[in-house]
Design a protein around this nucleic acid. Sequence first.
DNA 1: CGCACATAGTTGCTTTTTGCAAGCACTCAT
DNA 2: ATGAGTGCTTGCAAAAAGCAACTATGTGCG
Lengths: 138, 138
Amino acid sequence: MATADKKRNTGCPIAFALDTFGDRWSLMIIRDIALRGSRTYGEFRDTPEKIATNVLADRLRELEADGIIQKSRDPENQRKNIYSLTEKGCDLIPVVLEMVRWSAKYDRTTKVKASFLDKIESDREGFAMEIRSRLKDR
Amino acid sequence: MATADKKRNTGCPIAFALDTFGDRWSLMIIRDIALRGSRTYGEFRDTPEKIATNVLADRLRELEADGIIQKSRDPENQRKNIYSLTEKGCDLIPVVLEMVRWSAKYDRTTKVKASFLDKIESDREGFAMEIRSRLKDR
DNA sequence: CGCACATAGTTGCTTTTTGCAAGCACTCAT
DNA sequence: ATGAGTGCTTGCAAAAAGCAACTATGTGCG
């Protein structure tokens, strides 16, 4: 059973956002799709962060239920499910990019490339759009 | 005992950010300081979201340990601790504002004012600076 | 068909975290 | 000195996360 729905529903936007993706793993999945091009269960599972498979299955269910991602069958391999961001999910890209900016500034061991950072700094909206269309073209 | 330090340390900026404030409560505290002007334990405790006091104490410890907030005594009332954002914490304001934008768009019951949203849309950086200086002037 | 393998999960169990109610310690005001 | 305000801690129950093993279904190939 998926995590019980205990949304706070106080009208606060931060509470709303955290109820949707404010846990240790949801945003990681969104990152995998948006920035790493991941699309399948196996790709989400095999990241350095090592999510437990039951938690992964649970989060995929929740994110789909919340309309952040959508699931479809890979026409070329019926074993695979293809997960992708919905419009609502794509709208989280700016949030992700701001987090990248912040972490790049404060993580001494960051692996964020200067060129990536430059793109965010110089044209945030444009870069977000670029990522979106890259996702659409797959 | 504070939550054990189990940072993932994979070099990924999203993992880094989530390790710092990626839980149900940390960002709520940051919101309280940045957007609601909260500064004391009691103010953090008495929000509609009803954080448990042990979790609150734990998060305040963690956020301080991570250099996001700092703690000082209220000179006018020695019973009170004043919590405020450090520079590192203030740099999270853009992340918070992007989350507000997203939630305002997708939460049908949002309480975000149109005027607040307009400020974000029209001059994001300027608005972030405005919030920062408002915090400094207290 | 029949079998090995790939992919995507589920299940059962342990550990960790959260939630909740009560209580403690220090400070202030009188 | 006392009682109330503020900021916590403690102990215990409930929920979630982590872990390892197992199941289910589709694919490719002899």
